[in-house]
Nucleic acid binder design. Structure first.
Length: 595
RNA sequence: GCGCCCGUAGCUCAAUUGGAUAGAGCGUCGGUCUACGGAACCGAAGGUUACAGGUUCGAAUCCUGUCGGGCGCACCA
């Protein structure tokens, strides 16, 4: 189904052209108030200004030329020149059947499929995943789901922090522990040794400061890693692979579509870094100067328009005075790989807003170097912080970052307590499953439903509430629809047959029509969410859908033996399918049949 | 100091990117129900969109300034 806004826009644009000879935007949006209809066109205002006409008179001309009676009731002109449109029930009914007949809910694929690289999550190997990784991980995942669903070729990239100075000391400590175990005639149990990777990190750091011998070993380790020593690389690989297990468990818990297939960490680019620097040294700007120059001992690129706090040109440092490379260098190498090897048309970076300057400079340097042309779109998708109830960044009482695992476990635990209370007769297995879906879903949904650019206050009580725009409310709405189906089967109604028997949905009740109108807007909501990569548009849509369903549910008994029943069963079925698709396929939140 | 983001109901947040009378949820107050899950639904009250100017048919949204908050600004990521 072509989305309704586009369909109406085409007609109005054509009418404008016919009435005035001008090509102008129809500016169709959903009506600001349902009393005005379903959609409105504000195109007459802009054009009237341009032509120095009266907008109301212009709107009248446009409406006179408008051919839209297959979609809408007769258009109305209101106020200073709004064109108000109300969908014909027949049009709504027809589209309802198309959604029912199409496994993808009749959502149109993009006419311009692209290869889109999405860089998200990117945990640091030497740390457990904490609350700071939550937003990037799930926002990125949702963006991938939405892009993939409308037909783009999505390449997920997990740019993990698996290379750098800290691995010298980690490998050295790991090596010591292996040797120690060997002396005792035992084998080191890697998963146990590294279970608390941060404690391991702290221990190594401590030793560096207090134990000169260890510090020396750490230097040897880092030198060994850089020169490709098999022994040290083996140690490094063990550490990396065991930490990966940790966050793969988290991804599984979160139902995020990341696996080892998507990992392409900093270490993958280590052989390309010198080349990046050399290339930038050789490239010349328009004045014939090399792009990369030495400044205070470091190799830097100075993209235009960036200043330090002293007011000097701001460097993008790609090689430190001591010869080491930085994350800027790695990001440049990764960007080149994504363009040249992955053939990206677009690259989306999902990291917090604090890295804005870094990405602005990265993009500027890449363009200056000619690595990307104007057809390639680079996006830095920023987001705000997760705050505690006190309005400050969420920390534990002792001031540490909250571990993602602890946070999710707590959410599931609280959800379980609610299930125990509300539905004690369910089996232990079912309770477990529901608690998991509700707890994890609540955390994710709360994040998605906030505007990603602002900070938000993390509150278990709010996100687990049954009221309002929350995961449990949505999951409950789904469970309630599904229970109608169960009830119907108990009464001996063959639901599938009855739904298939609907040749023309009969949308006579206002609540039926309102629900149906909302159902056919699903594709539009995905487009809107994608245009700015903001999942909260999608959660808004789903919440409104659940509310429309509630209205319908109260007003229209479904299971009574009346001619209205087949259409009502169809509406229930499509509501369930839409909620499930939105929650599971796009947001990655599990639905349950009962809760 | 410079740059970026932000300031919307008592609280937590929206507002489809410049559209009509700024919307939800929580909390408060009042109501509904012998139907399919009351874990529901309906209604009321609550606003000078931080403040002051400006742009235009029209501003929470764009511009300027002020105040308040967050973040960032040369070798960490």
């Amino acid at each position: 189904m072509k989305n309704v806004i586009e369909l109406i826009s085409e007609r109005i644009t054509a009418a404008i052209e016919q009435a005035t000879g001008q090509k102008a935007a129809a500016m169709v949006t959903p009506a600001t108030d349902s009393k005005f209809g379903d959609y409105q066109s504000n195109g007459a205002f802009a054009l009237a200004k341009q032509l120095k006409n009266n907008p109301r008179q212009l709107a009248e001309k446009v409406v006179a030329a408008l051919q839209i009676d297959d979609i809408c009731l007769p258009p109305e002109i209101a106020g200073a020149g709004f064109i108000n449109l109300r969908l014909k029930p027949e049009f709504v009914a027809e589209n309802l059947l198309r959604i029912a007949a199409n496994p993808n809910l009749d959502i149109e694929k993009t006419s311009n499929p692209q290869t889109v690289v999405v860089d998200f999550s990117g945990p640091n190997i030497a740390k457990q995943m904490h609350v700071g990784h939550l937003r990037s991980t799930i926002l990125g995942d949702c963006i991938c789901n939405m892009l993939g669903f409308i037909g783009h070729d999505v390449k997920r990239q997990n740019h993990i922090g698996d290379w750098g100075k800290q691995f010298g000391m980690l490998c050295a400590l790991y090596d010591r522990k292996c040797i120690e175990m060997g002396r005792q005639g035992k084998t080191l149990n890697a998963s146990e040794t590294l279970s608390d990777i941060e404690a391991f990190y702290r221990e190594a750091q401590q030793l560096c400061n207090t134990d000169k011998e260890f510090d020396q070993e750490a230097r040897e380790a880092i030198a060994g890693l850089h020169s490709g020593s098999q022994v040290w690389l083996a140690r490094w690989e063990e550490i990396v692979s065991y930490s990966r297990e940790h966050y793969e468990k988290i991804y599984e818990k979160l139902r995020v579509g990341l696996s080892d297939l998507h990992v392409r960490g900093e270490s993958e680019y280590r052989d390309k870094l010198a080349d990046v620097v050399n290339d930038l040294k050789q490239k010349k700007d328009s004045q014939g100067n090399p792009l990369a120059v030495e400044s205070d001992g470091a190799i830097c690129v100075f993209p235009d328009g960036f200043k330090t706090k002293e007011g000097n040109p701001m460097p993008f440092i790609i090689q430190k005075t001591d010869g080491a490379f930085l994350y800027a260098t790695t990001d440049l190498a990764a960007l080149r790989y994504r363009i040249n090897e992955l053939k990206a048309d677009r690259i989306i970076y999902v990291t917090d807003a604090r890295q804005k300057l870094h990405f602005e400079m990265l993009f500027a340097v890449a363009r200056k170097a000619g690595w990307i042309n104007d057809n390639i779109k680079l996006d830095h998708i920023t987001f705000g912080s997760v705050l505690g109830e006190d309005g400050k960044p969420l920390k534990t009482r002792s001031g540490e970052n909250v571990k993602l695992k602890d946070l999710l476990d707590e959410a599931v635990k609280r959800a379980k307590a609610v299930v125990e209370e509300k539905n004690p007769e369910l089996s232990a297995d079912e309770k477990e499953k529901i608690a998991n879906a509700v707890g994890i879903g609540a955390v994710k949904y709360a994040d998605y439903s906030n505007n990603r650019t602002s900070d938000y206050i993390f509150s278990f009580d709010k996100m687990l509430a049954m009221e309002g725009n929350t995961a449990p409310y949505m999951q409950y709405a789904y469970a309630r629809v599904k229970s109608i189906g169960r009830k119907a089967e108990q009464k001996g109604i063959n639901v599938e047959n009855e739904i298939n028997s609907v040749k023309t949905p009969n949308l006579t009740e206002p609540a039926e029509l309102a629900l149906a109108k909302h159902l056919i807007k699903y594709g539009q909501s995905i487009n809107t969410a994608l245009s700015d990569l903001r999942p909260n548009f999608l959660t808004n849509y789903l919440y409104e859908l659940a509310q429309e369903f509630s209205g319908f549910y109260n007003a229209c008994p479904v299971l009574e033996d009346t001619p209205a029943r087949p259409t009502r069963l169809l509406l229930c079925d499509l509501t369930a399918k839409t909620i499930r698709h939105g929650l599971e396929n796009l947001l990655g939140i599990e639905v349950v049949k009962q809760m």
